[in-house]
Nucleic acid binder design. Structure first.
Length: 560
RNA sequence: AACUCCGUGGUGUAACGGUAGCACAACAGAUUUUGAUUCUGUUUGUUCAGGUUCGAAUCCUGGCGGGGUUGCCA
């Protein structure tokens, strides 16, 4: 990840950093990743993580992990732990720089007192509804609160008593005194502190007043000497307020907020609220359901961290709100897995083949290549015997013109084994094909072409019936059937893909597959990449389909 | 008709006044003990109208289109 060639062009944020370094504005670069611990990280966060930690790596700076934990009613340590785990999995390290906004509560309180004394903040006793209506709207200016010009001493006293717990939730708030007529609504006397009598996951019951995001973020950046505070576009309108605090409070440094567009993917929803809803309403099995765009979900699905990093590099950083093609992500996944994943044979939908001219009771250990892209991965032994399973799809009794696989009288290569010809089709009373009979050519051992120069058009995978391990295989498809489940009327849930999960309970695996450890992704030859799931055991493995191989045959069929 | 940000092939993303390039997707072909991979080729683009300039995707003006903003969420 670090030995790749430097990109020939830089995104606008890196250009800004270059300028700041060149002009001497900064002599180092410090970024931060500031999740709120109220949910699991998803692909959108991965974009931000790759940006912030990536910049720190490239510029020899550092990136802080700072939990933005100013709302105790929504936050929990469960999320803190999962977030840390996900960042590490992605391949990044915050070193010693783990912080919590709640670490700064004392400092922020002092600064609030400072603002009051400066005449730049006041305690407002209006109700939430009064504050809302007093703010005006996009067209109309707001009006001043009747408490706006109360004496400094009075605000000071009230604020201290807010902190002391004398008042109930929502009774009063601390507001900045900016401009109730400002075109940017964020500057119409924003709330700085609210009363919330709730246990905080770090500070316990020490506080009953909590600072708002806007009041917290920039000052936290300043305390940590963040140079470039990178966030998504929805905070663009907050920048003026971010700067207002830095201008009016004696902060120790001057960070700069820069916004970029968030990640959108088609066939996916990415908002925390919607992901939470999928989990709580049991449309998926949990935050780590392999269909979820959460980092824990895609990890369980088998997506390699390197693929996510490459993907984030490919999509770039801009201010344009775009929607990326899911195929781009899948391409990144296949690219890494094609290089890395060891190959095995597995038959998902088995049909028995009896090789009539193969000696009964004989077993041969066939040598198979582990990864043609990586010779150093070596070879393994796969048992071969008189009765094998092949994929039902690899046989057609009455094949169309371009079908290269097995059919009556036709010959194919069994991967790493022998040429096989189909001689006979056995059916049950209902006419269903229940078994095939065929013969092999002993002169093609290892799958070599025979001396007579005969060739076959196809190579298929197989598993020795007596040695096969039965397994459950979960075929995942996109969670949503429509490209933009968010758009249009109705709920995004209306767009759930009913076929997003197909469970196959009778798959047969080559025996080597039983020892693949949970979390490892392998290739089932000719089928796709599959990740061993934690639900499985050596006796009965469970595999999740990460992504299928490209399949030009299937594509041609669908078009035909 | 408030403020603000943004418009480059189907989808993303480069080009910093000088040949519109790259990736993905799509479509052909070659190779192949995975109908995979790999390789080669093809199709498709600067939102519009003016202006500045020898020269504009790029600078200016206006139009059109899209996003964000009216939490005591972040």
């Amino acid at each position: 990840m670090s030995d790749e060639p430097a990109p020939t062009s830089k995104d606008f944020i890196r250009e800004i950093i270059d300028e700041d370094l060149a002009s001497g504005k900064h002599d180092g670069t410090v970024t931060r990743f500031p999740p709120e611990p109220n949910g699991y990280l998803h692909l959108g966060h991965a974009k931000s993580i790759c940006l912030n930690f990536g910049i720190a790596q490239e510029y020899g700076g550092r990136c802080h992990l700072r939990f933005d934990d100013t709302n105790p009613t929504k936050e929990d340590v469960e999320y803190v732990d999962s977030i840390k785990e996900d960042i590490k999995w992605l391949g990044f390290d915050w070193g010693e720089h783990l912080y919590f906004a709640s670490d700064y509560f004392e400092k922020l309180y002092d600064w609030a007192v400072y603002l009051i004394k400066e005449g730049k903040a006041y305690v407002d006793q209006q109700t939430a509804a009064e504050i809302k209506s007093g703010r005006g709207d996009l067209q109309t200016p707001g009006i001043n609160s009747p408490y706006r010009d109360r004496p400094v001493e009075e605000s000071l006293d009230l604020f201290q008593r807010m902190k002391a717990g004398e008042f109930g939730d929502g009774v009063m708030v601390l507001r900045a005194k900016v401009d109730m007529a400002h075109a940017n609504l964020n500057l119409r006397d924003p709330v700085l502190y609210r009363i919330v009598h709730a246990e905080h996951h770090r500070t316990g019951d020490k506080w009953c007043i909590y600072p708002m995001y806007d009041y917290t973020h920039g000052q936290s950046d300043a305390i940590e000497h963040i140079t470039h505070s990178l966030c998504t576009l929805e905070f663009e309108n907050h920048r003026a307020l971010y700067d207002w605090f830095l201008d009016n409070i004696p902060v120790p440094s001057r960070p700069r907020q820069i916004e970029f567009s968030r990640l959108n993917l088609n066939y996916t929803v990415m908002s925390k609220r919607k992901l939470l809803q999928l989990v709580t309403e049991k449309h998926v099995s949990g935050w780590d359901d392999p269909r979820m765009p959460t980092l824990s979900g895609i990890r369980r699905r088998g997506y390699p961290a390197a693929a996510i990093r490459n993907f984030c590099k490919t999509i770039g950083i801009t201010k344009f709100e775009s929607t990326n093609d899911f195929a781009l992500l899948e391409n990144a996944v296949r690219e890494v897995l094609n290089q890395e994943a060891p190959r095995f044979m597995a038959v998902l939908d088995p049909i028995r083949v009896v090789i009539t001219n193969y000696p009964e009771g004989q077993v041969e250990e066939m040598e198979a290549v582990n990864n043609p892209e990586k010779p150093e991965a070596g070879t393994r032994l796969v048992p071969f015997s008189r009765e094998i399973f092949i994929e039902r799809d690899d046989f057609m009794e009455d094949p169309p013109k371009k079908f290269f696989r097995l059919s009556p009288g036709a010959e194919v290569r069994l991967r790493s084994a022998y040429f096989l010809r189909c001689d006979e089709v056995i059916k049950d009373a209902a006419g269903n094909i229940v078994e095939l009979r065929g013969s092999y050519d002993p002169e093609t051992r290892g799958g070599e072409n025979p001396p007579d120069g005969r060739k076959v058009k196809a190579t298929i995978h197989w598993v020795s019936a007596a040695h096969a391990v039965e397994a459950e295989v979960r075929l995942y498809d996109r969670l949503f059937a429509s490209e933009a489940p968010d758009r249009g009327e109705g709920s995004f849930l209306d767009h759930l893909n009913p076929d997003s999960l197909t469970v196959l309970s009778g798959a047969r695996l080559e025996p080597n597959l039983a020892s693949v450890v949970s979390g490892e992704t392998v290739q089932f030859e000719r089928l796709g990449y599959f990740c061993a799931d934690k639900d499985g055991s050596q006796e009965r493995p469970v595999f999740n389909r990460t992504v299928g191989l490209r399949d030009s045959w299937a594509k041609a069929q669908n078009q035909g």
